[in-house]
Write a protein that binds this DNA or RNA. Structure first.
Lengths: 103, 103
DNA sequence: GGGATCTACAACCATATGGTTGTAGATAAC
DNA sequence: GTTATCTACAACCATATGGTTGTAGATCCC
């Protein structure tokens, strides 16, 4: 998932498709690369669950999936929680032992 | 930055070093790979600003940088904000036009 | 001083990545 | 029916990635 978000074009595709539906070719027109390249990016995003595709006639509509974005956010929040835990423990040590950290 | 977070070993290193300080070799002992491999991961994380290194004698202490994690979180929050904007607009359309979406 | 440890970095390798072009199947438009 | 459009996928290429081993400079310990 982070890997899928690691590419700038893919992040942009997610942003666009969170804002509205786009066919793959409509997306491709917006980037200075071939249709096939954009198609691959969409496939990576789809495999990561960041977008979903829905057939509509001959075109395939791409929509961003906010639930997966939320899961990424939650994962990063857990990083911050670990950090807070460390800071809290440092506070406890200072509170328990007035001489903590000195010799 | 997302690229740096895209590797599982690197995410684990960030987690550990957010929780406490580790020398590079102390980190390396925890993973089933060579010291040099872990060193490279740390270098990638440092370049992305996700960890900082501080010399202490012959060892190099690695600390996670919560500020950068926060920036990643904020970026993802912006993704969700775009999504909310879309939903809000959809709500407005329905409110403005009772026949919206039908033929 | 001499040996052990920690780090840095280069060289190398297999595979993944991001891009290309080309071909082919469905669907829409005329 | 024929042509144009949208999509899928394969083949290919250059470069990046994640791993290895090896060498070498600092620092610590005896």
């Amino acid at each position: 998932m982070f890997h899928a978000l690691a590419d700038g074009t893919r992040r942009d595709i997610v942003l666009r498709t969170l804002d509205g539906e786009y066919s793959v070719s409509a997306l491709a027109r917006r980037y200075p690369m071939s249709f096939a390249a954009v198609q691959k990016h969409v496939a990576v995003l789809e495999a990561a669950g960041l977008v979903t595709k829905q057939r509509k006639g001959r075109e395939q509509l791409v929509r961003g999936n906010v639930d997966t974005v939320r899961r990424a956010t939650q994962l990063l929040d857990r990083f911050e929680a670990v950090w807070r835990g460390r800071i809290d423990r440092m506070g406890e040590i200072l509170a328990d032992d007035p001489n903590g950290g000195t010799r």
